[in-house]
Amino acid sequence: MRIDSHQHFWRYTPQDYRWISDDMAVLKQDLLPETLRDTLQRHDVQGSILVQACSSVQETRWLLELSEKTDFVRAVTGWVDLSSPALKQELEAISHPLLRAVRHQVQDESSPAQWLENPAINAGLRELQQQKTVYEILVTHRHLTDAVKFAERHDDYFLVLDHFGKPDLSLGAAHWKQQVAPLAGLKHVSCKLSGLLTEPRPAGMSARDLLPYFEAALEIFGAERLMFGSDWPVCLLADADENPWDLCEQATATLSSDEQAAIYGGNACAIYQLQPLPITGND
């Protein structure tokens, strides 16, 4: 089963999706399952993990309702206030068979470092891990050191680094590798091969120039802790002739079939405890 480990849906409203700026016009519209279905089929992807895009329990409930009616969504990464003293009850209130992970847009906090150090947040993470719920880390390269300290404190269940940790592409893959290696050294941390196409690039940098980041990720995480993610529809912000499916296929072309199977679905199935697709037809 080929899995896209990172995609979004939304009914666009400016107040809910404030991170969508004026130069992201293609994202300022409702983006729903039928818009993505043909693309997944074209790239032979049978399932996806649907990820929150605003800090709202209401959005999480809506994503879960949408997932029940969308055959290719295999799991949801939702949002909950990790600092809430009533977190256990709030998790119970949104409990759902497809809710397998939680994420917060730490990169948008006024002080991501303080957020990651917050005792209430860390207590919430301990509760989350006790319930065997994955937590996805969304930070930029500016706070990877803080993310390492955070991840070291929370090793009771899986943590997943989104979008390569959003590297500074102007500094090159070797610099990013050095930054992220301490995270890769923590065996409970995996990384999504997603988001690179829409990170700010130096003038003249092509999609092909991003391949060294994949090579570095393979060296430090190994194929057993990497997952392909398209970051659709955010990936639509890339140039028209660039897409994450082709980029990742270029990056993984020389890997063994077992390594490719792990990156394109096996690891996501294990980390997010995805159920196998139902068998159809006659054998």
Rank of each mutant, 00 (worst) to 15 (best):
12 Y>A: 10
17 Y>I: 06
19 W>M: 09
21 S>P: 01
24 M>G: 00
25 A>H: 01
25 A>L: 10
29 Q>T: 14
29 Q>D: 12
31 L>Y: 04
34 E>Q: 15
34 E>D: 15
35 T>C: 10
36 L>V: 06
48 S>E: 04
50 L>E: 07
52 Q>G: 08
54 C>D: 11
55 S>C: 12
55 S>V: 01
58 Q>N: 11
59 E>M: 11
65 E>H: 10
70 T>D: 09
71 D>A: 15
79 W>N: 02
79 W>P: 04
86 A>Y: 10
90 E>A: 02
91 L>A: 07
92 E>P: 00
98 L>T: 02
99 L>W: 07
108 D>C: 01
114 Q>D: 15
117 E>P: 00
118 N>A: 06
129 Q>N: 06
130 Q>R: 15
136 E>K: 01
138 L>K: 02
139 V>D: 09
140 T>V: 03
141 H>N: 14
149 K>N: 13
153 R>L: 15
158 F>R: 03
159 L>D: 08
164 F>R: 08
169 L>F: 12
178 Q>V: 01
178 Q>C: 00
182 P>D: 07
187 K>T: 13
187 K>W: 03
187 K>C: 07
191 C>W: 02
192 K>C: 09
197 L>S: 05
198 T>M: 12
199 E>M: 07
205 M>A: 08
206 S>Y: 02
206 S>Q: 14
208 R>M: 11
211 L>F: 08
211 L>N: 11
213 Y>P: 04
218 L>Y: 08
222 G>P: 06
224 E>H: 13
230 S>Y: 08
232 W>S: 07
236 L>D: 09
237 L>Q: 14
242 E>S: 08
243 N>C: 08
248 C>V: 12
254 T>W: 03
263 I>D: 06
265 G>E: 10
269 C>A: 15
271 I>S: 11
272 Y>H: 02
277 L>P: 00
283 D>Y: 14
